[in-house]
């Protein structure tokens, strides 16, 4: 097994490949991809394409292919979530709510294209798991938001994505677009299991913005399960969630 963690895009990104034959070169190609994504989409870098767009320096026809893809996916997600997912705030784009899951998904496809079947890519808690580890399902802990040293559930997963959205994630980038001034504190975190990390991430972001209604939204969504923790340290979970949980 080859495994490495690097700090990129303002978060730890871990890539681990179980398959024999995986080399440092394979990991480098994945990290090189994340560097490219960061250079294009980081709102913290003045030279990034998204910063140039936000300053009005680029006309829509000058946008890169990747930028068009991300903006289209954001628009689609806004429709899918009744407007709760919105990358536009104060007249500026902040696509971080979709870029992370999208990039992890693409990184996983990159590893797949190199012939690997058993691996995971984890960017700040947004995870794509593929195949198995030593013939066993991957074990993913859901972190206790009140005590980061603990996990409150252990999930057994393969070939799917899992993502968690929480309060004040990296400077409160999650908010309710319908009530932008209201701080989201009642729901502390929501963890979503989806068909892949892109799907899990975008619906985690949107469900979190919905407040207490978010978990019901996930319940009604086919192919997704969710586990929501509120400020009273109660969890509410969807009907199919338990089948992924390791029995204590």
């Amino acid at each position: 097994m080859i495994k490495e963690t690097r700090l990129l895009m303002g978060m730890p990104i871990t890539v681990a490949v179980e398959d024999r034959g995986a080399t440092q070169d394979d990991l480098e190609s994945v990290y090189a991809y994340f560097v490219l994504v960061d250079e294009r989409f980081s709102t913290y870098q003045a030279s990034s394409e998204i910063s140039r767009i936000n300053r009005g320096e680029l006309a829509p026809e000058q946008y890169s292919e990747e930028m068009r893809t991300v903006l289209a996916l954001s628009e689609q997600t806004k429709r899918d979530t009744h407007g709760y997912f919105d990358i536009m705030r104060d007249g500026r784009y902040d696509p971080s709510g979709i870029v992370k899951g999208w990039a992890v998904h693409n990184a996983a496809q990159l590893l797949e294209a190199r012939g690997f079947r058993n691996f995971y890519v984890d960017a700040g808690g947004d995870v794509q798991v593929c195949g198995k580890k030593d013939g066993q399902l991957w074990r993913i802990g859901v972190r206790n938001p009140f005590n980061r040293k603990e996990h409150v559930k252990v999930l057994l997963l393969t070939d799917c994505g899992v993502a968690t959205s929480g309060t004040a994630v990296r400077g409160q980038h999650i908010y309710d677009p319908h009530h932008p001034s209201v701080r989201l504190v009642d729901v502390v975190s929501i963890t979503i299991i989806g068909p892949d990390v892109f799907e899990a991430d975008r619906f985690a972001t949107a469900a979190f913005a919905m407040g207490r209604k978010g978990i019901q939204f996930i319940e009604e969504l086919s192919g997704f399960e969710g586990y929501m923790i509120d400020a009273q340290a109660r969890a509410t979970y969807t009907s199919g969630f338990e089948r992924y949980v390791l029995r204590p």
Binding site: G125, R139, G141, V142, R148, H151, G166, T167, R170
Partner: peptide, 10 residues
């Protein structure tokens, strides 16, 4: 093997 959770500032 892996932990999912909101990031550190959260």
């Amino acid at each position: 093997d892996i932990v999912t959770g909101a990031t550190d500032s959260s």
